[in-house]
Amino acid sequence: MGLRDLFERDVQELEQEGILFSTLGKLVAWGRSNSLWPATFGLACCAIEMMQSTNARNDLARFGSEVFRASPRQADVMIVAGRLSKKMAPVMRRVYEQMPDPKWVISMGACASSGGMFNNYAIVQNVNSVVPVDIYVPGCPPRPEALVYAVMQLQKKVRGEAFDQRGVELPMVEGWAR
């Protein structure tokens, strides 16, 4: 089918044949996966490694995610770097709500992902109870390369190539039905 025919046809027609939401969807996912802009959300020592991953040695710009946005309205992915105290949890939820909709969350480090060694009343034991987490990164703190690997994992998820231990395919974005 030529490009001219494609433009002359009706949108509903293309949608029914699955062209609009499969082929174009793949293209959009490819574009999204190569420009994941993180929101600045460093909470503790993991933030130092997060900054390190953007510098010249571990150049996160090679994956299109070097611009850490100070405003959540311009960000696609929130990297929760460090332990999240219960006082901070509503603030983080608010920052997450302010991000525009195709959005993802990387939970970086042991403390953000599971509380780590801070098993006490002040620390949120899993960031997933506040925001939906897409990627967990173990480590205390993770190496910058481990974060680069996590961004590569997130790219796989954005492109729809991710599956869990039981072989169940994971959705590209958690909130499509929202």
Partner: peptide, 12 residues
């Protein structure tokens, strides 16, 4: 080995 990032909490 440091490349441990994964998607689901239960898989860790």
């Amino acid at each position: 080995e440091f490349e441990l990032a994964d998607f689901v909490y239960q898989d860790f």
